[in-house]
Design a protein around this nucleic acid. Structure first.
Lengths: 328, 328
DNA sequence: TTGAAAGCGCTAACAT
DNA sequence: ATGTTAGCGCTTTCAA
């Protein structure tokens, strides 16, 4: 049987209260008893039971994080960043892979509530605002506006879209396509798309979108891109809404014998360490994933410390960086 | 304030016990009271407090998973698989990214214990057996022998090594290198290496290893591989201990104008969905990640159900598959 | 500086 | 079929 507080008290020859005080470093205790208690704790290999502790209304030191898909390198790196920050502060991470499934996301939210997590970071957005409001927990959102009560952290997607497009224009492209799915309102891609549109307009260039079926499987995406490249439409530059899509495009171009960057210039978006390392030639817009993670956590801590504090600022937009590379 | 059991009881006009019984569907209760209780629960939007529940010695329905690095697509996919299986059974996943840091892994183990998780899946192996034994929790291990008390799940790394090597031989290679770090005993790479060695010996071919600095950064790896390719050593085939390493090798080969597969054939190991999708030309040995995840969870459930049950089998080796592709 | 007692929200005997 | 009571392991008044 695991030793408990009373066992330590008995061994140290004092009351449970005293042991509790020592553990929490709370109130006045003589150095002598402190030592005795620590000795007893060590001897019994005592570990406080977090459950019992949290039951008193204390924090559980657990944070729930909901992501659409941990298998996507971007979210893997975001989770890694969050996890690392949390671990440093003694928090644990409950990972929820919502898998683009709103039912699952809904169940997760319930679970997290039942589990009494101290707060939630959500990067998945299948659910409406109401669901999140109903949960009376501190929440911080990544990339999506939930309400003015919920801080939102995001990269500067609009500016990223501008940067990417301008980079293609500067490289001499005339017929530039946007590849992605800008239609679903409220998602970050839309902002990237707007940046593209505005930049094209400023340059006096016509904009083109290849949006078909981009929420579909990579295979479907590949097919769509192949068609795009094979069609008789003129195009010499493509801004992909994310790096993975860009990789598929590069692959299709290669198969069709289209030279990059001579015949076609390509730029992506996200700039994960993984892609930067294993596909270093891809030009992209780099999101500051580590900073995003750190900020998400920091804001959540603030919400936890004071859930009702007025937010002087509800939206945090982090700067992105253009990474010039060979595909451009 | 969140409603509690007694609130529901009051509203339903019955005792807390009855409510508890309804929730847990335990013992005999009339349909009438059941209905009343459910109505009250709904009305108050009642959510049982898992903490209080678990304090009675019930399960926490939380599983801890320790991985070396979630940023590695292999582990991302393994975690995704585990998470999915667990979620289906109402379990939550506490993710621990040990980051090749044995101190951190040690702290994690303590945390998981303090958090009273029902069990642990560990895929990270910085820690010795003792640490894991000390924790009195059901444990299942991925890829590493901890003790005969701990079930271990792994892919057939040895056979994978044989398959990969044989594939290179069949493709006509004579001078085949193994690239990876086989020295650290007990890690899966060693088995892959052994498969390579044995297969080479059987074919009467001499074996070569490029093992320098493979626990280092991708950049260091790249440098090492560049040197290997530039040296005057003859080589026409390389078996990389994992896909990511293979990608680096391919990149260096490309830069040096070495044609793959004409001048050099390459095969990797792991076969994540990510790499299969975004680098479909890479030949590799595919680990059945989904099956591995499912088995890990299944075995853990068994351990949880009966921690002391004799293990008629302690080691589970899952079959791997050769994926023939253009790099070979 | 320390201890006794009550209670966090729930469940599990033991009654009835 | 339902209620009473005690207690999970800890913290927190309140008292000494």
């Amino acid at each position: 049987m695991r030793p408990k507080l009373t066992d330590v008290a008995e061994k140290a020859g004092c009351s449970p209260t005293t042991v509790s005080r020592v553990i929490n470093n709370h109130g006045y205790i003589s150095q002598k008893t402190k030592d005795k208690v620590f000795a007893a704790m060590r001897e019994l290999n005592y570990q406080p039971n977090t459950l019992a502790r949290s039951l008193q209304g204390k924090q559980t030191k657990m944070i729930g994080m909901i992501v659409p898909n941990i298998t996507n390198p971007f979210f893997a790196e975001l989770v890694a960043g969050v996890e690392q920050t949390l671990a440093d502060d003694g928090y644990r991470l409950l990972l929820c892979d919502a898998d683009r499934d709103s039912d699952k996301e809904h169940r997760y939210l319930q679970m997290l509530e039942a589990n009494q997590v101290d707060g939630i970071i959500t990067g998945s957005h299948n659910l409406g605002l109401e669901e999140y409001q109903r949960v009376g927990l501190p929440i911080v959102s990544f990339d999506r506006d939930l309400s003015d009560k919920v801080p939102i952290v995001t990269s500067d997607n609009y500016h990223g879209g501008c940067l990417a497009t301008q980079a293609l224009i500067d490289a001499g492209c005339q017929d530039i396509y946007f590849v992605g799915n800008p239609s679903k309102t409220g998602n970050p891609t839309t902002k990237r798309f707007l940046g593209y549109m505005d930049t094209m307009a400023s340059a006096g260039l016509p904009s083109h979108t290849a949006r078909s079926a981009f929420y579909e499987s990579p295979l479907a995406k590949s097919m769509a891109m192949r068609e795009l490249l094979q069609s008789d439409r003129k195009l010499d530059g493509v801004f992909c809404s994310d790096d993975l899509t860009a990789i598929l495009l590069l692959k299709q171009a290669q198969r069709l014998g289209i030279r990059v960057p001579e015949d076609l210039k390509v730029i992506g978006f996200d700039g994960t360490k993984l892609v930067q390392t294993y596909l270093p030639e891809l030009a992209t817009i780099v999101q500051p994933i580590g900073d995003l993670a750190a900020l998400l956590v920091k804001l959540l801590y603030e919400r936890i410390a004071d859930p009702d504090k007025h937010l002087d600022k509800n939206s945090y937009v982090m700067p992105v960086k253009l990474l010039r590379n060979q595909t451009i």
